[in-house]
Simulated scan of single mutants.
Amino acid sequence: MSQTAPTNTTIPALDEEGSIPAYVARPRTDSGRAIIVIPEIFGVNAGIRQKCDDWAAEGYLAIAPDIFWRFAPSVELNPDVEAELQEAFGYFGQYDPDKGVKDIEAAIRWLHGQGAAKVGCAGYCLGGRLAYMTAARTDIDASVGYYGVMIDQMLNEAHAIARPLMLHIPTADHFVGPEAQAKIHEALDPHPKVTLHDYVGLDHGFAATSGDRRDEAGAALADSRTRAFLAEHLA
Rank of each mutant, 00 (worst) to 15 (best):
F92N: 14
L111S: 01
A116R: 04
E87T: 15
K99V: 14
G115S: 04
W110V: 09
L111C: 09
G90C: 08
L126K: 12
A122F: 00
F92T: 07
W110N: 08
G123R: 00
K102N: 12
G123K: 02
A107F: 08
G115H: 00
A107N: 10
Q94V: 12
R109Y: 07
G120L: 06
A107Q: 09
G113S: 10
E105V: 10
E105P: 01
C125S: 05
A122E: 15
A116L: 03
A88G: 15
G100K: 03
Q94S: 13
D96R: 02
G90W: 05
A116V: 14
A116F: 04
Y124A: 06
G127H: 12
D103I: 13
E105L: 12
E105W: 03
C125K: 00
G115P: 01
G128S: 10
Y95H: 11
G115D: 06
R129H: 15
I108F: 00
G120W: 00
L130W: 05
G128A: 05
G123H: 10
A117Y: 02
A88E: 10
P97C: 04
G93H: 07
D96H: 08
K118W: 05
G127T: 07
E87Y: 13
D98W: 10
A117L: 11
K99G: 12
G128K: 06
L130R: 07
V101P: 07
Y124C: 06
V101S: 11
L126Q: 11
I104W: 02
K102I: 14
